[in-house]
């Protein structure tokens, strides 16, 4: 059930360079939120009119966590929001990652701020008594979120483009370097830049891994009204059409959609 509500900020801190975590008291949304879903934050601004969508990075009873990167006017504003301030928020929106417990290896692969929904997903998988494998790639050490987010993960692997932290290379290459040790069935859950997503989709296709990817798109409404946030269906039929990231997604099985559209 979606709720439009005013929530209170409990915490809002930088966790890496330009990356912040906001904690909100929001039982209406947190109690039903699932990993992969997102919320809209509304701004009373007539110049930048769109609400902004954010992946849910955690939900426990009354508490909702968001992790966001400062990229523009709205997120710069958000970085300055204080504890106790109210925020107009709508959610939970969109679909969710689905976890098939019969799979042997659950591999979470995040790029940059794409870590957000995966932290939530890792919590859920751990609660189910399964130990997930977590790969996170960042540009450099400064952009690696605080280690406390990953403390409970036994099988966490960092990488950076410049080699300043963890494996030197892309998160996909880091995952590939671990593949020889992974023998049985694999399910991939990913969120990151388009290039990472496309590379994973190709890999998953070749090796027949189940692969779910959470997409990011500019959205005007987040509700399926504007039809703006499309991803092309994977089909040889030229008229196959589009899926909406806000409503049909944001999580799609990698074989259902086209990349680099």
């Amino acid at each position: 059930m979606r709720h439009l509500t005013e929530t209170i900020i409990l915490e809002n801190n930088a966790v890496a360079k330009n990356i912040f975590r906001m904690t909100l008291k929001c039982p209406e949304i947190s109690r039903s939120a699932q990993p992969g879903q997102f919320v809209n934050i509304y701004f009373s601004d007539q110049i930048h009119i769109f609400p902004r969508p954010f992946s849910i990075a955690g939900a426990t009873d009354e508490i909702l966590n968001l992790i966001y990167r400062v990229v523009g006017v709205q997120t710069s504003q958000m970085a300055g929001w204080k504890i106790g301030q109210t925020v107009k928020i709508l959610g939970p929106l969109g679909n969710q990652f689905t976890v098939d417990a019969s799979v042997d290896n659950h591999v979470l692969i995040g790029g940059g701020v794409g870590v957000a929904p995966l932290i939530f997903l890792a919590d859920k998988i751990l609660q189910g008594g399964i130990e997930p494998q977590f790969f996170l790639g960042v540009k450099n050490r400064d952009e690696m979120p605080d280690g406390k987010f990953f403390r409970q993960l036994q099988d966490f692997h960092a990488s950076s483009d410049d080699g300043s932290i963890g494996f030197h290379g892309t998160v996909v290459d880091n995952f590939l370097s671990h593949l020889p040790g992974i023998k049985k069935s694999v399910a991939i859950y990913a969120c990151g830049p388009e290039k990472m997503n496309a590379a994973l989709a190709q890999l998953a296709g070749e090796r027949r891994y189940d692969c779910q990817i959470s997409f990011e798109r500019l959205m005007a409404c987040g509700l399926g009204l504007c039809q703006g946030c499309t991803v092309k269906k994977n089909s040889t039929d030229a008229e196959a059409g589009y899926l909406l990231v806000c409503k049909d997604g944001p999580v799609f099985h990698s074989d259902r959609v086209m990349f680099n559209d």
Binding site: I49, F50, L218, A220, G228, C229, T230, G241, Y242
Partner: peptide, 11 residues
Amino acid sequence: RAGNPSPRITE
């Protein structure tokens, strides 16, 4: 109608 390809909107 499937509509137009991406990108469809900008602020």
